[in-house]
């Protein structure tokens, strides 16, 4: 549905977007993840034909964003970082205007207005002036605006920024419910958002793509080793000695916990070998009490930090 090929945007010597390539399949939700200033907004602005790219191509639904901008614009719903609202208009007046300029046929406008208001749950607010709405409601009107012409592609720039936790949850669920019929790209710098809503993630840093994968794969791949967390009651030295004797254990870090004689262990093991059973066994064999035992997954947060800092080291 969306094909981006070596897209580059240059401002003087600064490359805001540097040879970015990725694809989005129909009905997919793609998360665009990166720190502020990484080039997320610029990429989205190029896809929506707001900005021209310096080099490279981008196609939406088979149409080039530069050569066939009108066709692309007809097929895209875009929610910029700041919802583009006219404060002095009513919600209905505003949505009417957007429906008109997006090319919704006159006979369909009333129905579409009702439908999008239902979708984003602002049914009772049609006659209200936009300036009297709360931030969460303004964001919803922004989403309604992006949906009004039932576009094939939705591009949402930080759709949950500045909302309170309940509103964030609602917007995320709304976005999820829209996938399938719509192809969605959403950008965010909040990691849990990506693992909650997106099927695939593009991690971008300093204008370059550093990783593209599913949230699950990303967390798995980045782990060079498996990590195990364990709590046990007994001699710290003894436990460590036993653990080191097990083949496949790379390192053990222990820390005393509040309770007398109880220690926590962070054990790093080789990825190829599953040594969890042998570790548990050896601890119990020695007569110690095993209180807690679980394998650790790197959070997307850690993956993200790793990926983006690696990038920095490499570029230096």
């Amino acid at each position: 549905m969306i094909e981006v090929d070596r897209l580059t945007k240059r401002y003087g010597n600064l490359k805001a977007v540097d040879e970015v390539s990725f694809q989005v399949e129909k009905g997919e939700i793609l998360g665009f993840l990166g720190p502020n200033g990484a080039g997320k907004t610029t990429t989205m602005r190029i896809l929506t034909c707001f900005l021209p790219a310096t080099e490279g191509t981008a196609r939406v639904a088979g149409y080039d964003v530069f050569e066939n901008a009108m066709e692309v614009k007809r097929r895209i719903g875009y929610l910029p970082e700041h919802p583009p609202l006219y404060d002095e208009m009513t919600v209905d007046g505003y949505l009417q205007f957007v429906a008109r300029i997006k090319g919704v046929a006159p006979e369909d406008r009333k129905r579409r207005l009702r439908e999008v208001k239902e979708t984003v749950r602002i049914e009772g607010y049609g006659k209200k002036l936009i300036k009297h709405l709360s931030k969460g409601f303004k964001q919803r009107v922004g989403l309604a605006q992006a949906l009004i012409h039932d576009p094939e592609v939705l591009i949402l720039d930080e759709p949950t920024v500045g909302l309170d936790p309940n509103q964030i949850k609602e917007v995320r669920e709304l976005i999820k419910s829209l996938s399938g019929n719509h192809t969605i790209i959403l950008s965010t710098h909040i990691l849990p958002e990506v693992s909650m809503t997106c099927q695939r993630v593009v991690i971008i840093s300093d204008g370059k793509i550093v990783a593209v994968d599913t949230p699950e794969n990303l967390t798995r791949q980045q782990q060079g080793a498996a990590h195990i967390y364990m709590e046990a009651r007994g001699s710290d030295v003894e436990v460590q000695r036993r653990l080191h004797r097990i083949e496949g254990v790379l390192s053990v870090v222990s820390r005393p916990l509040g309770e007398e004689g109880v220690f926590s262990y962070r054990i790093e093991t080789e990825l190829k070998q599953d040594v969890r059973g042998r570790i548990a066994h050896s601890v119990i064999e020695e007569g110690f009490e095993l209180l807690e035992f679980r394998s650790l997954q790197l959070s997307l947060e850690e993956v993200f930090t790793q990926l983006t800092t690696q990038e920095e080291v490499r570029s230096q």
């Binding site: 602005r45 929506t48 034909c49 707001f50 009108m70 614009k73 007809r74 895209i76 875009y78 910029p80 970082e81 700041h82 583009p84 609202l85 006219y86 404060d87 957007v98 300029i101 997006k102 090319g103 605006q145």
Partner: peptide, 13 residues
């Protein structure tokens, strides 16, 4: 108010 983004990304010449 950034509404220019709405206008320029709509199928308006």
């Amino acid at each position: 108010r950034a509404t220019i983004e709405l206008l320029l990304t709509s199928p308006l010449t």
